[in-house]
Design a protein around this nucleic acid. Sequence first.
DNA 1: TAGGTTAGTTGCAAAGTAACACTAAGTGCG
DNA 2: CGCACTTAGTGTTACTTTGCAACTAACCTA
Lengths: 230, 230
Amino acid sequence: MPRPEPTPPSPYPMPFTRVETVTLSLMEARLRVLLVRRAAAPFAETWALPGGVLRIDRDASLEAAARRVLRERLAVDAGDLQQMETVGGAQRDPRAPWTLSVVYRALVPAGSLVPVPGKRVREVAWFDVDHELPSRPLAFDHGPLIARAVARLRADVARLELPLGALAPTFTLGELQAWCEQLLGRNLDKSSFRRRLAERDLVEALPGERREGPFRPAQVYRAREATPHD
Amino acid sequence: MPRPEPTPPSPYPMPFTRVETVTLSLMEARLRVLLVRRAAAPFAETWALPGGVLRIDRDASLEAAARRVLRERLAVDAGDLQQMETVGGAQRDPRAPWTLSVVYRALVPAGSLVPVPGKRVREVAWFDVDHELPSRPLAFDHGPLIARAVARLRADVARLELPLGALAPTFTLGELQAWCEQLLGRNLDKSSFRRRLAERDLVEALPGERREGPFRPAQVYRAREATPHD
DNA sequence: TAGGTTAGTTGCAAAGTAACACTAAGTGCG
DNA sequence: CGCACTTAGTGTTACTTTGCAACTAACCTA
């Protein structure tokens, strides 16, 4: 076994490293992003993405860091968590000479989060990504980060790479379609939606079971486990 | 103008931050990746991606850091440079307690690079991503990083989001198709390739000009400038 | 029993794609 | 001169995917 060298890792200063989260959810049938209003400079009083400093003493990985930030700052478990992009440079944040932010997109189940202000945060609120955000100036480079995260989520959903982690454990196909439609912000065709679902094997029927409405009951499904198809 | 605070940025230790490059090129009609053979532990004698430490005193941005690494270590200008993903964690590299690597994919024009060994590198070589790589063990987590970068490149090319920066300044449609075919590792249909090219407006004919073979001359094209289509 | 609502399927037309054949334009050779 | 060969570029046709809409099924209520 090669003995790890005790060499000091590097004489170079390292960037101020953070994790930012684009936290999305469906509320009242609209896709919304959670923002916090900053209490301190820079960008005091401006809305920003919730984020936090990477804690190498506590976070085992980048994804773990993103989960910790969501848990600590927002008290929410990210159902689906995807890394988006990493931005870094000398001029991003006046608090440090060089900052690096790894951006994660979190999709959380509807109603899993009651926004409460915390440290360094005046206010927490959800914003409709299509109707409320475009006009609003955001702190740092957070505006384009959100736009790209939303675009990528919608591209994923459009080709049925669904963030199933943020979905209820069981669901009917009608519910699944409505959920996709709300994420996309447009309607889908029922028959081709079902056809495309069947081609991939994303979901499986829970045999025998069904669920109530005042109308015809529907088959209940659940997400199939990640199938390494080969 | 809000005065930047002189606050010390953070009491937290920051991760050992690097940039790794998945440097790809077409050589002898095959997609190849440039690897270096490590001279020192850990993973001495093992092939690895070329990379370097982020130098916040010299790099204005992450992309600039990737360009510097390519220039200093490989003496090559990246025609097309795309950020792939960022990996980080406590157990990645025994040289530091916590390392973070931002991975870039570079596609360089064929023959723009003569591989020369340098510091901490025994050997430099190109490997066919389809035939030589899968069997070969690589240092760190570099194997999956390459696989994902290649898959993403091919997905991009398949839907004609072409890394035009790595292309010759002018070309014929036949050359462009052959280039895509070599990147993808499979053949494309001529007529639908041209039809799909025409729908997007990726290329434009250089009017009047044409170029020689021993056969019928072809129209010369060039890449259209990034058109913000709205 | 009729009517309303959602679940689920079927048929068809429109659009997009792949396979292949065809014409066009140049070179070289008999 | 004209034919064979090669690459450039276009049409034609068949197939696959998608969107639209109609239809049946199941359940409730009145």
